[in-house]
């Protein structure tokens, strides 16, 4: 599969060889190959899901049930805590939890993008980006199972649905795009530094409570800027607001676009620099 340098055949004196391809072009080629082998990572992600829930009758719906239980429990108590009514709070909570689950598990599993695939990476040459796409696609499948709760939550509490709903699709696409660079980046860092996954796991736990997932950013009053500039809130907000038929927070799309450009660009530079080292670190 991997042909190292197809344009040169290596005959003749070394002075006649063209310069080796740059790291950036190799990384770009890796990503391009990864994108075009969509069948590969979709099939691998499906196998991951099949395997993870083998022997359980409900399969990935177990997660849906655990999200349901959490929604019922928090939805029963928190409206009293926050002094709002359930009709406003529960749809906000359910969509928030479902999306947060996607965001947080993708970040957590992103740490294992390469480490978990060690035996494959040491056996068969394949584009490294395939492993990142696989992580993201696998979590999108889980999200699809969890998302069943969303229409129930919306219909049960008579949330008005309008044309804004359509915005959820590009928002989810942007979110997935960010998930790819996060998996790539965390995958590389975790391959080199083995204490990164536990650091990320405890970080995620803290972030869940300080990000407006189950509470509204307006509650912060004049400190709302901390919610507005939190990219993880923006990630949830751009998908959740269209579902609930409310406008997104003014900053959310901008924060997400900035995260895509800066994070994606940074991760690409990082990937180009360390791509050739990944196999050595595992």
């Amino acid at each position: 599969m991997a042909t190292a340098e197809p344009l040169t055949d290596g005959t003749g004196p070394s002075s006649a060889w063209p310069a080796p391809p740059s790291r950036a072009s190799l990384a770009l080629g890796d990503l391009r190959q990864g994108c075009s082998s969509g069948w590969m990572w979709t099939a691998l992600a499906m196998q991951d899901i099949r395997l993870r829930y083998r022997g359980s009758a409900l399969g990935p719906f177990w997660l849906t049930i655990s999200t349901l239980i959490m929604s019922v429990a928090m939805g029963g108590i928190y409206p009293h805590l926050f002094g709002t009514n359930a009709a406003n709070y529960v749809p906000y909570l359910v969509t928030g939890l479902v999306l947060w689950q996607f965001v947080s598990t993708t970040i957590a599993e992103g740490c294992g993008t390469f480490v978990a695939m060690e035996s494959v990476i040491h056996q068969t040459p394949m584009p490294f980006s395939v492993h990142a796409f696989r992580v993201v696609y696998r979590n999108l499948i889980v999200l699809a199972h969890n998302a069943i709760l969303v229409p129930f939550g919306l219909l049960l509490f008579h949330v008005p649905v309008d044309a804004r709903l359509l915005l959820a699709a590009p928002a989810l696409l942007l979110l997935s795009l960010n998930a790819v660079w996060v998996s790539l980046f965390l995958g590389i860092v975790s391959a080199r530094f083995r204490d990164v996954p536990p650091i990320v796991a405890s970080f995620l736990q803290v972030v869940f409570f300080v990000t407006p997932v189950f509470w509204a950013p307006d509650a912060l009053g004049r400190w709302k800027i901390f919610a507005d500039l939190n990219p993880l809130f923006a990630a949830v907000d751009i998908v959740r607001a269209p579902l609930l038929g409310v406008p997104t927070q003014p900053w959310s799309w901008w924060v997400m676009l900035a995260a895509t450009l800066l994070g994606g660009g940074g991760a690409f530079v990082f990937f180009a620099r360390f791509r050739s080292r990944i196999a050595y670190w595992l």
Partner: peptide, 18 residues
Amino acid sequence: AGIFQPTQGRLFAAGRVS
């Protein structure tokens, strides 16, 4: 096989490797 990139030197190859 293309699994490890050499730290020095180059590899010229053509053909499907397994």
